Amino acid sequence: MIRKLFKSILFLLAVSVTMSANAQTKAAQDLDPKQQAIIRIAALTGKGSLEQLKEELKAGLEAGLTVNQIKEVIVHVYAYAGFPRSIRGLQTFMTVLDERKSRGVNDVMGNEASPIKNDCSKYDRGKAILDTLLDTPQRGPQTGYSAFAPVIEIFLKEHLFADIFERDVLTYKERELVTVSVLAAIGGVEPMLQSHLKICMNVGLTADQLQQYVGIIKTSIGKKEANSAQSVLNGVLKSK
Rank of each mutant, 00 (worst) to 15 (best):
I2A: 07
L5F: 10
L5K: 04
F6A: 09
K7I: 13
K7F: 12
I9D: 08
L10K: 06
F11G: 00
S16Q: 02
V17I: 15
V17K: 00
V17L: 12
T18V: 13
N22H: 12
T25N: 09
A27E: 14
P33L: 02
Q36R: 11
A37V: 04
I39G: 00
R40D: 01
I41T: 02
A42D: 08
A42W: 12
A43W: 10
A43I: 11
L44H: 04
G46L: 06
K47R: 13
G48Y: 04
E56N: 14
E56W: 15
L57H: 00
K58D: 14
K58S: 13
G60K: 07
E62S: 12
A63I: 07
G64E: 04
G64R: 03
G64A: 01
T66H: 02
T66Y: 03
I70Y: 04
K71S: 05
E72G: 05
I74S: 00
V75T: 05
H76P: 03
H76R: 09
H76V: 06
V77P: 03
Y78K: 08
Y80A: 02
F83Q: 06
F83E: 01
F83Y: 11
F93K: 01
M94N: 14
L97C: 02
L97I: 11
D98V: 07
D98E: 15
R100L: 15
S102L: 11
N106R: 10
N106T: 10
V108W: 01
G110A: 07
E112L: 12
A113L: 05
S114P: 07
P115K: 03
I116F: 08
K117W: 07
C120S: 11
C120R: 08
D124W: 05
G126L: 06
K127Y: 11
T132P: 01
L134Q: 08
T136P: 00
P137Q: 08
R139G: 00
G140H: 04
G144K: 13
A147E: 13
F148Y: 15
A149T: 05
P150Q: 10
V151Q: 15
E153H: 09
I154T: 15
I154Q: 13
E158V: 12
E158S: 01
H159G: 00
L160C: 08
I164V: 13
I164H: 03
E166V: 01
V169G: 01
T171Y: 06
T171I: 10
T171E: 11
K173E: 15
K173V: 06
K173L: 12
R175F: 10
E176F: 15
E176R: 07
L177W: 07
V178F: 11
T179F: 10
V180Y: 04
L183W: 06
A184S: 14
I186K: 01
M192H: 04
S195R: 06
L197T: 02
L197V: 06
V203H: 09
V203M: 05
L205W: 05
T206D: 02
A207M: 08
A207S: 15
Q209M: 09
Q209V: 09
Q211N: 15
V214F: 11
G215E: 13
I217S: 01
K218I: 03
T219A: 05
I221C: 01
G222K: 04
G222E: 05
K224D: 15
E225S: 13
N227W: 09
S228R: 14
S228C: 00
A229S: 04
V232S: 01
V232N: 03
N234Y: 07
G235M: 11
L237R: 03
L237I: 15
S239N: 03
